[in-house]
Design a protein around this nucleic acid. Structure first.
Lengths: 377, 377
DNA sequence: AATCGATGTGAGTCCGGTCTCAATCGTAGG
DNA sequence: CCTACGATTGAGACCGGACTCACATCGATT
């Protein structure tokens, strides 16, 4: 048995050198495969290393090469499949180039993000991929950039910082999908997002997230092009836990001038929104139309299958990683920069407006889901 | 502007010491908050550090403390929400104790896992959490254990290794859910898993995954207790991509003696199985009953909502992390060890056997999903 | 045979911290 | 006034590799 209960000291080059009866320098050369080493010495060293089960200490190596071969990834919430997939794209790509990934979760909290960035920098990661919680509070990102450490942004941009950013053109797809809804006759379209903000929403509100403000801009433009007024009163931010999302959903769907279509800002919200709609005894798409961001596999399983905005999430993660690695290795950024387009996947959750003649023929599904009705109060 | 394009050398204790006009040792003491330091010196050092924006190099620190405050997490697939959630539990807990997480994906490939473990060890992580791809090929885990480095297993155990393992009692819940299916009158229950294996399945086959073999053991026991013979011909392993899962699903659902109930081994498989069932024009639960492992939120949204085996995944991740950290910090393991139980969540996807009188009253839902029918060939 | 360039080789420094050790300082006790 | 002991302080070793530099060695060149 080669084990001895206590954790034995690690084998170092010095140990190998002694066993092979050569100097530490020679052993290091043979092991590190650099410099000039005679065959005889190389063989003895390698044999000794094998025998002793020598493994280089990457920490020590990083110390004087200055490279840790590790990249830091900072996301809002890995629990969200969106980031799960993106992370997968990142790690797959990183591994291919010999990089490891330290993952930090911020809960979409800027303070946590600032902290995460600091910690990762302290650990001397070679570069960072950040999905910034805020597009406004970006001093910490600016500092990273100014210190010269490679940094790539994912999903959202940072105001005033010319950083390489991998994201889809949200305004464009938002325009397209809003247009689609408008064409189906909808005028009262609600938008629900978890984005935390202090102020009540209005056109002038400066939002913390480039992603959300781009989407709203897209919606507003679509309304303008259609010669309609954008229903700002149906924008609901600060959607938090399932309960609050449910309440917000009820709010926009009840009252004097209710929404006829609801757009959910991400897959997690979508779950609660759809549940709330079902609980209210409303049918999709007969009573309410529904559209969500991110194309998760389960959206094909509901009745009706949901109409979604699909984003090439995995590819974006992979692109962010390879862009970062290019930066780290001093190679020029890919030109032209790869573009990522979101696409509207028309399935069955968007229909005509109830009690009104649809302007054009939108995907009006005739599926009538059987729903558990829990009377609306 | 304090920035200068080029990446400037990091500020070190020596720099701070010089600025504060004290020795390197004193500066280090003041900064590291250890040893004896006069108030005067401490103030000067701290001020200088602030001024120079000094940040300790964690790599160097790790080098001689031997602690990296980093733990390695090796999972099969973060894309799978199961691991996404578990990872969240791990990172949340790790962060609370000041640890970071390096995440590695193995694609459920043992060779990749061996490699991942080696790399993490080289990086001198303080400990490892591994969801082993195989319960049989575990030499690399044994080596880790013998080297004395803390290691905790997640989800699956490793044959012959007495390692702290955080997992639910799969045999028990499998027994319970099989029993449930049997009580509903099902005799032909299919089980579909991604587990890769060379051999055709038979009772003697020694499976690579403790998790899967436990589940099958539970099923077999339930059948035995019911005085029935276990339909080994309906066990389908090696389910890979969506296409192959579809084919396997058709296989068990067609033919002379088809399955009347299908159990999907995880959420990813479930998606394709349900799609395949829908495509075949079969209705759940009227024509086929369905049960899956892992309780994802979307399972409540389908029509009918799916009956699932819920596992406290987040809590298990958190428990694995805190167990590991206890080991790292030399504290004794929690006694009694926390237990995790999976629960059967009866929703609407399990019904009576078509054309047969149900033995007992199982959750027989009357929902009839409207399905796109694509005629069965 | 003297010179030259291409290996080989070992001693020692460096990376940026932590930590040991011996020296110095201050002042309380005698 | 002198000793002693704790608080301070600085020099330097050390962690484990990578790498520089000076010093062989040796066949090839002329």
């Amino acid at each position: 048995m080669s084990s001895d209960g206590a954790r034995r000291r690690d084998v170092t080059v010095a140990d190998v050198a002694k066993a092979a009866q050569v100097s530490k320098a020679q052993a290091a050369r043979a092991l590190g495969n650099y410099g000039a080493v005679s065959d005889d010495v190389r063989e003895r060293v390698l044999a000794a290393a094998e025998e002793l089960e020598y493994r280089p200490n990457e920490l020590a190596r990083s110390m004087n090469t200055g490279k840790s071969h590790t990249i830091g990834v900072v996301v809002g919430d890995i629990e969200n499949p969106h980031f799960g997939l993106a992370t997968r794209g990142i790690t797959d790509t990183a591994k291919k180039s010999g990089y490891n990934v330290i993952l930090v979760n911020t809960d979409e909290n800027t303070a946590a993000e600032v902290d995460a960035v600091r910690v990762l920098l302290d650990k001397r990661v070679d570069g960072l991929i950040v999905a910034p919680a805020s597009s406004v509070e970006t001093q910490h990102l600016r500092r990273v950039h100014e210190s010269g450490r490679p940094l790539v942004l994912l999903d959202r941009s940072a105001d005033g910082l010319a950083l390489e950013t991998v994201a889809v053109d949200m305004a464009a797809i938002s325009y397209e999908s809003t247009r689609y809804l408008l064409d189906a006759g909808h005028r009262r379209i609600a938008f629900i997002s978890t984005l935390r903000t202090d102020a009540e929403y209005s056109e002038e509100t400066r939002l913390d997230s480039s992603q959300i403000s781009d989407r709203l801009a897209g919606m507003r433009r679509a309304y303008a092009d259609a010669g309609r007024e954008f229903p700002g009163d149906l924008v609901r931010l600060n959607a938090g836990d399932a309960g609050s999302i449910r309440n917000l959903t009820r709010e926009v769907l009840l009252g004097g001038d209710p929404a006829t279509a609801v757009v959910a800002s991400d897959g997690l919200i979508a779950l609660s929104v759809v549940e709330a709609i079902q609980e209210m005894g409303l049918r999709i798409p007969d009573d309410v139309s529904f559209l969500m961001y991110d194309d998760f596999a389960w959206t094909r399983l509901t009745t009706p299958p949901l109409t979604v905005v699909a984003q090439p999430v995995y590819e974006m993660g992979a692109a962010a990683a390879s862009a970062l690695i290019r930066q780290i290795e001093g190679r020029p950024p890919l030109a032209p920069a790869p573009e990522f387009n979101a696409t509207l996947v028309r399935r069955g959750s968007v229909g005509a407006v109830p009690d009104s003649e649809p302007a054009h023929s939108a995907a009006s599904s005739s599926f009538s889901p059987s729903l558990r009705t829990s009377a609306v109060p």
